[in-house]
Structures are given as C-alpha cells and as structure tokens.
Design a protein around this nucleic acid. Structure first.
Lengths: 242, 242
DNA sequence: CGGCTGATTGATGACCGTCAATGAAGGTGG
DNA sequence: CCACCTTCATTGACGGTCATCAATCAGCCG
C-alpha cells in the first residue's frame, strides 16, 4: 500500500498548505515543479483515475474500509483524527504531489477532507501493489517518501509538545513559505480553526497571535486569505529552530 | 560516549517502552520476541554487528553524518530533538526489534541515547541498500514498518495537541502495557523527565498526575520503577480514545 | 441590504508551568 | 555496614499562558 508519484496537473495554482502526513512523491522541485499532466517518469500516472472534489468535501473517513490510496493533483486537503468528544487534531495539509491513505491497515486511520476545490487521483491498492512488484525501484521511492513524512511528523511533535503559541504560528507560516520555495507572500486557504487544530491551539489564540505579528510588523495580512512575510529573519527567530 | 561493553546482563529483562518512532521489524511477537541472535527469517541478522551500550549513553547525535542504521536488540533507547534553547521533545522510546537512523538524509535528524543498558546492532547503509536490491520483499517490509511508525507518530500528534495532562499520562501507561501484550504490571525504566519530555509536560505535572491516579486507585506504584494498572477500563476512559 | 459565516477582540479563569523545598533512593567511600 | 552525597521524585505555593465564554466586526451571497 503505498504510493506515489510526482507530477501533477494543476499544480500551477500553487496552493500553500504545507505539512505532509501523507507522501510527497514530488520532492519539492521548487516553484514550478509540477506542470505537465503525464510525465513519463511518473509510474503512477497511468493508475486509477482522477476526480474533482468540491471545497469542504469528505474524501474518506477514519474507519472506512481502505481500498485505495489517493494522490492530490491540485488544491488542498486536510487530514485529521478526532477524539470521541470531538476534539480534533489536523495531522497535515496536503498539496499537489502528496499522497494519502497509505497504510498497511484495513481501515483508514484518519479522515481526509478538501479545503479548496481539489483534483485527486484514486489508485486501488491492488494496482499499487502490482506496480511495486513490477518496479522494485518504485517501492524504494515510496519508502523514501514515507520516511520524509515521518521526519515531518517528528518536527510537528516538537512543535506541539514544546513550542509556545507564537512559535507555533511563526513556524507554520515559515513552513508554508518554504513549501512555496521561500516566497514572501503565502496563501492561507484554510480557516483559523483549521490552523488552530493543526497547531494545538484555539482559533482565538491563532487570531490574537496573528494580530500581534501584524502589530510587530513581522507580517501583513492581505485580502483573500493571503499573507505577507515582512521580516523572515525575525519570524525564524521567533519560530525557534524551524 | 558511547560504547562500552557492559554485558548484556539485562537483555532478557523484557524492558517495556512502547513507542516507536523507528521501525519495528519484529511485529511484536509477544513477550519473548527477540532472543535468538540469528533468526533465519530475519534478513538483517547477518548484517553489521551488535554492540552493548551502557545505560545513559549516546548512540548518535542529531546532525552527525548518518552512515549507519541501528536496530535495538534489547534494552531501551530514547530518540529526541532539541530546540536551540534546550527544550527537548522525546520522539519515542525504542525497544527490541525497533530500528532507528533510517532516513534518506545525510545526517541524523535526532539524537539517540540509551535509557537502560542496551544491545544495538549497527548496520552500514551500504549493506542495507544492498539487501534491498537483493530482496525486493525486504524493501516492502521496511516500507510497512515505516508506515507503522508514521501511524504511531500521528497518534502522538493527537496526544500532544489535544489531550490533557491526565489523558496523556493514562494513554502513555496503556501504550506501555499494550506493548507488553496487555500485562497489568508495566516497567518504567525511564525517568519522570523523560516521560514529561515525551508527553509535552513537566516532571512535576507527570508526578502529580501519577499521584492522582494512585489516589483514585487506578494504578499502584511499585518499587523498582514498576507500576500496576489496577483499573484498565477506567484508564482507557481517561485516555480518551487510545 | 439583510443574514450568515468566520475573524477579531475582550474579560475571565483554569490548567499547567515555574520556582522552591522536602523526601526517598541509590551509589560510594570510610 | 553505615554515613554521606548525589540524583530524582514528590509536594507546595504561585503565576502565566492560553482556553473558555461572549460580544462585535468584517466579508460574502442571494
């Protein structure tokens, strides 16, 4: 079960998101990474088929029978787990090239929902397995991608366990920027409560923290969910390590 | 700082630990999982060589050139990352069968230290790569193990981001027990500050929380770092989900 | 332009961190 | 074998960060 591949059709919309928690088969080739729809170097390109999901739509739910893996082609997806009483932890935000649903389990272990309108490739597990059998090098690529995910997850543990609210928000913004190749202006297609549930905070705290960063002239909040990083160095200091 | 042969006197001592954060190549075969040094079904058995480390010893440090991967044969290891100012997040505690240092990066991304006296197998990356080339099925096993790690990491994110101190401690104790096959009596070879740095708490809070659980008759604290789970159901309720 | 959803701002307080002291345990040396 | 010392766990007092509760405020859409 696993997956991957790189290339992606709509990637030119440069959706921000950032984390991972799934597998990025495209090692972030920089800004204009994924444009061509069918790259011969993408072993997954011919598997399954793509589908467009509207914004705020469920792709699969924690506990569902896991018959396929998915790859985000464009747009943004959030993955999350919930506690019985409704508390939510967003595991990651996925963007073009990222994979999800990979696991050697019979059921999905988290819920996947679109944040924006999103194109997603669905790949039956059987096809993926066949590909791994046929191309051993592909299994290694999947392993590499999964390992990167694991590293990102470990960074997130540091953030959640040991960083203050300001450090969490600064880190989050920098990650988004890095994912876009270090651009100064980033997109925030997700709402404040998504950010909060990803950082282990509340929407109010996220909002207050952003306001403080704005007052300190470290960021500027633009219309349309965009945001300007005015002082990257100061943000990096605040982020405390990454 | 590392080595020394302290004899593996305690190897058969079934150290508890629980998390993962590395790769468990032995799918938890029960209690006496790793005793025989050379299992024919273990493709790693013939690679590298084993060494005994004393307790509280560094195996490798974050940032070191990463030339080998390691597998814990017995004992317990903690993996952690630190922020520049010294705050520490323990990524996981490893036990027999778990692997560490796996990453397609030039440097180790976390520090590994023994908690107890520990026997560790060191495997040069070149040998591991050769094995993957020779046995494609092995690469799949590694992928499977890494995926399990990732799942555990995601559960830890829920714990760190959304659980209260009591829920964190209860979850931690139950995980330790599960790792021992659900036994009622568990070992806590690590100190309170290790537990705290793993759960995103302070030693004082861990201590107070354990005292509360003791007063509520949910646990009993025994000598020698052992602990009895008196009411597993109540603990599971408290843990809130897992 | 009214109504809805989400973001912001304010007031209050709880949970847990910090600082500090005491107590228990293990290791060493006399 | 016991006294001493070091290390760690426990307990207490206090305070801060961030959650909670609540009220605007801003943007979006029909």
């Amino acid at each position: 079960m696993s997956t991957h591949a790189a290339i992606a059709a709509h990637a030119n919309r440069a959706v921000p998101g950032y984390l991972v928690s799934a597998l990025a088969m495209t090692p972030n080739t920089g800004v204009g990474a994924a444009i061509q729809p069918r790259n011969p170097a993408d072993p997954l390109a011919s598997l399954g088929h793509a589908k467009v999901y509207e914004r705020e739509t469920t792709v699969f739910t924690e506990g569902d029978a896991a018959g396929s893996v998915f790859r985000v082609m464009s747009g943004m997806v959030r993955l999350y787990k919930m506690l019985p009483d409704g508390r939510r932890q967003i595991i990651g935000f996925l963007q073009a090239g990222d994979m999800m649903g990979l696991a050697f389990a019979a059921q999905y272990l988290y819920t996947a929902e679109t944040v924006t309108a999103t194109t997603i490739q669905r790949i039956p597990r059987l096809e993926l397995d066949a590909l791994m059998d046929a191309q051993p090098a592909f299994a290694r690529k999947l392993l590499s991608a999964t390992t990167s995910e694991l590293m990102a997850a470990q960074d997130q543990m540091v953030l959640l366990g040991r960083k203050t609210a300001a450090e969490k928000v600064a880190t989050f913004l920098l990650r988004l920027s890095d994912r876009k190749g270090g651009e100064q202006t980033i997109d925030l297609p997700m709402g404040r409560s998504d950010i909060a549930d990803h950082l282990g905070l509340t929407t109010e705290t996220v909002s207050r923290t952003l306001t403080k960063l704005k007052s300190s002239r470290l960021i500027r909040i633009l219309v349309g969910g965009k945001l300007d990083l005015l002082d990257r160095d100061a943000l990096a200091d605040l982020a405390g390590g990454f």
